[in-house]
């Protein structure tokens, strides 16, 4: 820190300072020899010796740090530090005292109010969230209900369509099944009849055949060829082994055969209706059994001629023919 007392030009310390002797300032005196600025002149006249000595001491002490200066500085710093700490402590104490009263008072007064608010806040939140949830639930329920109803309607439509399809399928299938069952029934009936016939034939054979006949007669099964009807009657012939005549199996059966042929001859004056029936049945037999039409014709004739038929008066026959002509549009 620079000295505040007096001014010292340190530029030329070796040059002696020519101080004025008088007690006042004479402007007439030339200052060219020892120029001194007037404003640097001390207002109070002091003895030049102690000032100079002090200046020397000061100059020495500032320019050259000594132990005393060090002590002095440390002391000053310690004083300042202590002062600051003291002031700080005083401020802290004041603050503590002030804050302590304030906090005690406010916390006690604010605590219940804050808790209540918080509880109210929580309650409000719960109420809001509950109401919101209920509203959302209602909305979802409504949506679910409508959506479920929509889905139910769609399902019902699909199911009704499927039911209709199944009904039509079932109907078609039932028709087919009915037809097939009719076919099956007719086939079963035929089979049953054939079985009965087979049994009766076997029984007849057992009764009629004797061991001697079985041993003596060796039959040769004829091969029936596809021949036109006119040729067929002439050329079809059963072939027996050489040296054998057609066997006479049973005299009674032979006589029956003869009577049947006689009956046929008697009733040969047949009408067109019967001829049509014979030829039609022969066609059916030909188709179903894969046999010649001539053979079928003759077999059908034999079969039909074995049955007695009710006599129908001509008047009734005429009425029938007329009705058939009208209903079936026959020309």
């Amino acid at each position: 820190m620079p000295p505040t007392e007096g001014y010292q030009d340190n530029s030329s310390p070796s040059t002696p300072i020519d101080l004025p002797t008088g007690g006042y300032f004479d402007p007439t005196i030339s200052t060219t020899e020892n120029p001194v600025e007037p404003f640097k002149q001390p207002l109070k006249q002091q003895s030049p010796l102690p000032e100079a000595q002090e200046a020397v001491e000061k100059g020495q002490s500032e320019n050259q740090p000594t132990f005393i200066n060090e002590i002095r500085k440390l002391r000053e710093e310690n004083e300042k530090k202590e002062r600051r700490e003291q002031l700080h402590q005083e401020a802290v104490d004041i603050n503590e005292k002030r804050n302590e009263g304030f906090l005690n008072k406010d916390i006690q007064s604010l605590k219940p109010h804050t808790t209540q608010n918080y509880q109210d806040f929580i309650k409000d939140q719960e109420t809001i969230s509950k109401a919101g949830k209920e509203q959302e639930n209602d909305r979802l329920k409504q949506w679910n209900k409508s959506e479920l109803e929509k889905q139910d309607r769609q399902k019902e439509e699909i199911i009704s369509k499927q039911i209709e399809e199944l009904k039509t399928k079932l109907k078609n299938q039932s028709e087919v099944i009915n037809k097939q069952s009719d076919n099956l029934n007719s086939m079963i009936n035929k089979i049953e009849e054939l079985e009965q016939r087979l049994e009766s034939i076997e029984n007849e054979k057992r009764e009629s055949n004797t061991p001697s006949q079985e041993n003596n007669i060796q039959k040769q099964v004829p091969i029936i060829k596809n021949l036109p009807d006119n040729q067929y009657s002439k050329e079809w012939k059963y072939e027996y082994p050489q040296g054998q005549n057609p066997p006479i199996e049973n005299e009674q059966e032979q006589s029956n055969t003869n009577t049947q042929v006689q009956e046929q001859e008697k009733s040969e004056t047949t009408n067109e209706r019967e001829q049509q029936l014979i030829s039609l049945l022969a066609k059916m037999l030909e188709q179903q059994a894969k046999i010649e039409i001539s053979l079928a014709n003759s077999a059908i004739i034999v079969t039909l001629k074995q049955k007695p038929k009710e006599e129908i008066p001509d008047k009734i026959k005429d009425l029938t023919d007329l009705s058939i002509q009208v209903i079936f549009e026959k020309e």
Binding site: S186, N189, K190, E193, L194, R197, L285, Q288, I300
Partner: peptide, 11 residues
């Protein structure tokens, strides 16, 4: 049907 069966059996 019987007639047809009879005829068939005869053949």
């Amino acid at each position: 049907e019987n007639d047809l069966n009879n005829a068939f059996n005869l053949i």
